[in-house]
């Protein structure tokens, strides 16, 4: 009996050793969206080394990735994020409104509207560009199949949609009727609407559906790198949108966990020369191009970019309900492909 008890105790101790995580001095949780996985894997390692030399403390940064809206919901429901790095301003606003853990003026607390990197929307086509796709009007040519996720659920897809809208506005000189006609025609060429950017990429590259994928520039570069430059090529349209994925400190959580110092250093490091270099290396456009390697910067195509604050859109607060709200423009122009 005693032997049994002893082995039971040993078993419990072993179990506990497995449950208890490796204790680091500080652990931060960065709740982010899907396509940033590779960026933060590299950045976290660099930051941990930097923090160690600066303060002598060990910091471990844990990651959680998912669709931007879903991740915001998780933080609202109690996921203990120290920092959030999401795809859309509206998602961080939602956390601020629902929990009060982030002050309403969060966008003004960090440089460049709290966006240390930006990206844009480009096309990914199959090698050799068999359908001859060079710009937006080519997407609505007879027989072209377009892959893009659902703007109702995907942050990236909203940027894609708005980029197309910006093109239509320019092409049709602001004639709303014609612009809607173009958008309706565009979405008639979409055979499936995935729920997220990564899902759409997988549909295009793995399942081989569609002739062109409208996606984040960083996502297109990554697909090229991971799956082979001999299979796909990137096409930059004549006009696109400047997407600004924002970051924020979750004050309510860091003050409770006592991680404010490390979390602030973490976000600040994104703006540092090393942070900006890693940003560019991972296919995001850095806020300070001067800090990036020239070779990395040379990869980005030059194209005309409009911003969400352009009068055409009037900022997210106006564009979101007008285009993506129930009964908004997207609902009016979209009919599932037959």
């Amino acid at each position: 009996m005693r032997r049994m008890r002893r082995s039971l105790a040993a078993g419990l101790a072993a179990l506990w050793a497995m449950v208890a995580p490796a204790v680091a001095d500080t652990t931060l949780l960065n709740v982010s969206y899907d396509p940033t996985r590779e960026l933060y894997e590299a950045f976290n390692a660099a930051f941990a080394a930097h923090f160690k030399t600066e303060t002598g403390e060990t910091v471990t940064v844990r990651m959680s990735h998912g669709g931007s809206g879903k991740q915001a919901r998780a933080v609202i429901d109690g996921l203990k994020a120290d920092v959030v790095t999401l795809a859309l301003e509206a998602d961080i606003d939602a956390i601020a409104e629902a929990t009060g853990k982030i002050p309403a003026n969060w966008r003004d607390r960090l440089p460049n509207h709290s966006a240390p990197y930006t990206s844009t929307i480009v096309f990914l086509v199959r090698k050799g560009n068999p359908q001859g796709i060079h710009d937006w009007p080519d997407l609505v040519k007879e027989g072209v199949e377009v892959i893009t996720p659902n703007p109702k659920t995907s942050g990236g897809a909203r940027w894609s949609y708005l980029a197309a809208w910006a093109y239509a506005s320019e092409a049709f000189h602001g004639d709303e009727e014609a612009m809607r006609g173009f958008m309706g025609e565009l979405f008639r060429h979409v055979p499936v609407l995935d729920t997220g950017a990564r899902g759409a990429t997988t549909t295009f590259v793995r399942r081989g559906i569609g002739d062109v994928l409208i996606t984040w520039e960083n996502e297109a570069f990554l697909a090229l790198k991971e799956l082979g430059p001999d299979k796909f090529e990137i096409v930059a349209p004549s006009i696109s949108i400047k997407a600004e994925p924002p970051i924020a400190l979750v004050d309510g959580n860091v003050d409770k966990a006592g991680t404010r110092q490390a979390a602030e250093a973490y976000l600040a490091y994104l703006y540092s020369p090393e942070g900006q270099r890693l940003v560019a290396k991972n296919f995001y456009r850095p806020a300070e191009p001067a800090f990036a390697d020239n070779a990395d910067m040379a990869r980005f195509p030059h194209l005309k970019l409009v911003t969400i604050d352009d009068p055409l859109f009037g900022g997210w607060k106006k564009a979101q309900p007008a285009h993506f709200g129930n009964g908004g423009v997207f609902d009016q122009i979209y009919q599932p492909a037959r």
Binding site: P21, L29, R62, M63, S64, H65, A74
Partner: peptide, 16 residues
């Protein structure tokens, strides 16, 4: 919550 190395089980890790 999909925190890597902390709250991901095997099926979740496969998806990731």
């Amino acid at each position: 919550g999909h925190i890597r190395g902390l709250t991901n089980t095997m099926p979740l890790h496969v998806e990731i």
